[in-house]
Design a protein around this nucleic acid. Sequence first.
DNA 1: GTCTATAATCAGATAGAC
DNA 2: GTCTATCTGATTATAGAC
Lengths: 205, 205
Amino acid sequence: MTKNPPVKVSFKAQMLLAREDAIIRSVNLMLAQKGFDAMTVDEVAADVGIAKASLYKHFPSKEDLAAAAMVFVMRRAQQYLDELPTQATPFEKIKQVVRWVMSLKLAGEMPSLPSQNSSLRTTLMNNKDYMDGLMDVSDRLGAWIEAAQAQGDISSKLPAIAVLYTLYARACDPVLEFLKMGDLYNDDQVIDLVMATCFDGINAR
Amino acid sequence: MTKNPPVKVSFKAQMLLAREDAIIRSVNLMLAQKGFDAMTVDEVAADVGIAKASLYKHFPSKEDLAAAAMVFVMRRAQQYLDELPTQATPFEKIKQVVRWVMSLKLAGEMPSLPSQNSSLRTTLMNNKDYMDGLMDVSDRLGAWIEAAQAQGDISSKLPAIAVLYTLYARACDPVLEFLKMGDLYNDDQVIDLVMATCFDGINAR
DNA sequence: GTCTATAATCAGATAGAC
DNA sequence: GTCTATCTGATTATAGAC
């Protein structure tokens, strides 16, 4: 379509990416606020400010829309892991990641997907970017968990995989919303409370 | 089929209750398996073996159907609390309840509702039976929590309400499914692992 | 109260002009 | 690629006969 290939194409490509980024951010917020089922493609289109048909030029289905949002948060997670202070111990890194994830959820930026939806699961499992990101994050966290267990910071009685899942679950912990709803605690206090139950449990010591 | 009035009326009423009970059990299982949004009224009717229009004679809406299922589990919970051994300490009772709730979830008998759905929330909040049951269960658990804190079994650093929410969250903990999916652990082992993370945390002691 | 048949609506996806 | 307009299917809910 263009007559001067290099500049014009680059500009158009940037516009394209910017629009897709806007779409993904919108989907991300909607998934966090309403969840996958309640989110409608019409709403996303309206929020982004484009026609629904245009959305479908970028993403072939609602499931792919959600998958793109998950790829986005995976990238954010990878970037966050990259930027953790290198001198921190594995245990400190883990705690910081969990704290960060919960702050994302409280800020309404952590998309929530129904774990039962099969079509969505299929789309996610077939999405290489998402799966690669998930594997990478899991590998890094898993290595830190094992290191923290070796150093006596995390209980060695627990399988590392159980610890990993327990950490992941903090990203969709309803306790965060419940405690926030009561208006008794602010966000930082809510996070401190859930951090305490997560790492120390509810038993007295 | 019989001609004696008193018996006949009673029999019909029993049939009615039995049918409603069958409906609720079906809804309960479907909510646990697929969740509220994915569950369709057609499926429920088909599963019960009656016409959809008949369902709507019993329950005026899908939301009320789900609410009835929640009332059902609330009653089950109240009954379970009633039957706990009286000589057990509050802490022991709490642990037993949590274990029971997780076994229900693993057995696919714990309905999962989207906490965000507003129409469902409204129906639930307006359902006196449900709210009464929830309050009763919360009061009893709350009293046990405070007693356990006084006896030094549960950490006194945590507000009782945070402990209560943490226990409730075990009824919809995705870690249970994740660990079960891996096929590394059987149901009892999965429950033991989540019990350990819930009460002892993941820290080493 | 139960049924068959149907209304009414909503949401995901597409056609086709520009 | 973006738009308007539309299709298609699924789903909640109801009408009306028996």
